[in-house]
Computed example of a mutant assay.
Amino acid sequence: MASERIFIQAIRRYCADHGIAVDVHASGWLVAMRRGKTRRFAFGYDIGLNSAIAHRLANDKSATAEALALEGVPCIPHHLFLNPKLGKNVVGPTWRGAMLELLHGHPQGVVVKPNEGTSGRSVFKVTTEAELDHAVGEVFSMSAGLVISPYVAIEDEVRVVLLDDVPLVVYGKQRGRDWRHNLDAGAKPVLLESGEVRTACVKLAIEAARAIGIAFASIDVVRVDADWCVLEINSGVMMESLAKLHPELVQATYDAALDRVFAGR
């Protein structure tokens, strides 16, 4: 159906070509696929290739940053703060003071965003205490936790889609008027040709994927002060915007992942 997400359309095409029965439930967020006695599921944008722990690490920005730092993979720090509504025994009394310390330690500002989530929603650049309180209130109104990162001037952002350390898609995000590089915020995907930038980004993405043991993921790497580092890892591989420009590439990428899904584990 034309109104369905590209992700669902790609699964339907693959299943139709391979004799696999497919049922879509929960307004398109749960997909059941069956071939003979083999049943597989996709949920959200997760196609089912990653282990539970890799999936959870990738969906938690703070945990991702901690895991990458342990392996010496350069990344943007993400400091975790839990929602005080969880209770004093969980959160403790010093959370706002710690936030202010981060703010005052970065005169250029900080970025406040949900610890989990995608597409740049509820992401705030903050330079004052008033802005901090507003951003924290907004994020905590819909999230159990938030992360604070130092604001950095991102020169370039590149997304690498990996399957078992093989780069299937590599594209830059051409920023619009917004300070963010999110595709939902108006950035445009531009495929990267072979060259020094693509090679550096793929190498870093592979190191990041290996650090958390993830098989199929999209990894965002950014260039700050001429150096590349990891911004985040996404266990759910979303390519809705890219599919408008390169539908065959997107279909081929999901096909390769689904081949792995049905090849056995």
Rank of each mutant, 00 (worst) to 15 (best):
A2I: 03
A2D: 10
S3P: 00
I6M: 02
V24Q: 02
R35H: 15
R40H: 13
A42T: 11
G44I: 12
Y45Q: 08
D46Q: 11
G48D: 12
A54L: 01
T64H: 04
V73D: 11
P74R: 07
I76S: 02
P77L: 13
H78A: 15
H79P: 08
H79Q: 13
L82I: 03
K85A: 15
N89A: 12
G92W: 02
L100S: 08
L103Y: 07
G105F: 05
H106T: 10
K113T: 06
H134M: 12
A135P: 06
G137S: 14
F140M: 09
A144K: 08
I148C: 01
R159C: 05
L163P: 14
L163S: 14
R175C: 08
D178F: 00
D178N: 05
R180Y: 07
N182C: 09
A187K: 04
L191I: 15
L192F: 10
E193W: 06
T199N: 12
C201Y: 01
V202L: 02
V202A: 01
I206G: 00
G213Q: 10
G213P: 09
F216N: 00
V222I: 14
D225G: 04
W228D: 07
V230T: 13
H246P: 03
A252E: 11
A252V: 01
D259V: 13
V261F: 05
A263T: 06
A263M: 07
G264Y: 09
